[in-house]
Amino acid sequence: MEKWPDNKAWLLVLPVFVIVAFSAIIPLLTVINYSVQDIFGPGQSVFVGVDWFREMLQDYRLREALWRQFLFSGLVLIIEIPLGVLIALAMPKRGWKASAALVTLALPLLIPWNTIGTIWIIFTRPDIGLLGAVINNLLGIPFDHTASPLDAWITVMLMEVWHWTPLVALLAYSGLRAIPEAYYQAARIDGASAWSTFLYVQLPKMRGVLTIAFLLRFMDSFLIYAEPFVLTGGGPGNSTTFLSLYLVKIALLQFDLGPGAAFSLIYFIIVLLFSFIFYQALQRVGKGETV
């Protein structure tokens, strides 16, 4: 029987295409369009080619924000992944204690991001904040995130770790719970120490969830905006001005739509590139042939 080409199936894909077009493709094309024009006002624009890209790539403030961003994301990953795994290992395995631990852990994840910033502003205030007052008055160490860049970084890091480590812990916990009991039994019979059991049973079995945790935390921390915006506003000086904070300053506060669009695209490509590199690298871990 001869088969006639039937293109009706494309109609079924159409709704998805329309939704994706409105949610991603059209906005992205708009940004690309802006990035090659100098816009003076509604209907007044000039084509400028790649000038904005050139300008943005030479902008030292963007470069500083980029290094700051890498330092921030790097610290986030170095702290949150091991800490999350540790918490997951220490959590109760079953019963009401396990449920209680899960709910407690999930709490920071349920709080709106702006509120998180506000909580930490109050928490670290030297005069009335619980943490700030304790450090300043009881321990006698001057600590003020509005005055000292180091204190600002410490506060932002503490807030970030408090906010997102639970996500890593929950993912790691689910990975741990999925390991069949027989693996632990075999490890005991083989005389494996707790450390070997972790290294050769638990960690390899958690690879999948930890890859997800790693990528999520990298992307999220690289795009962080609301919490530092509320907490430090990028200061003191520019010390906590991360990429997204700087982008908003250019695109919305100064209303430089062209440079802002070029910046957005550079930002987008960096996130995409690094996520891809990390994914490939993590997929390869533990898959090569070794003796």
């Binding site: 039994q185 075999a186 050769y200 390899p204 533990g286």
Partner: peptide
């Protein structure tokens, strides 16, 4: 055991 228990890595 019932199913193979190995150190995958």
């Amino acid at each position: 055991f019932q199913f193979p228990v190995l150190y995958d890595t």
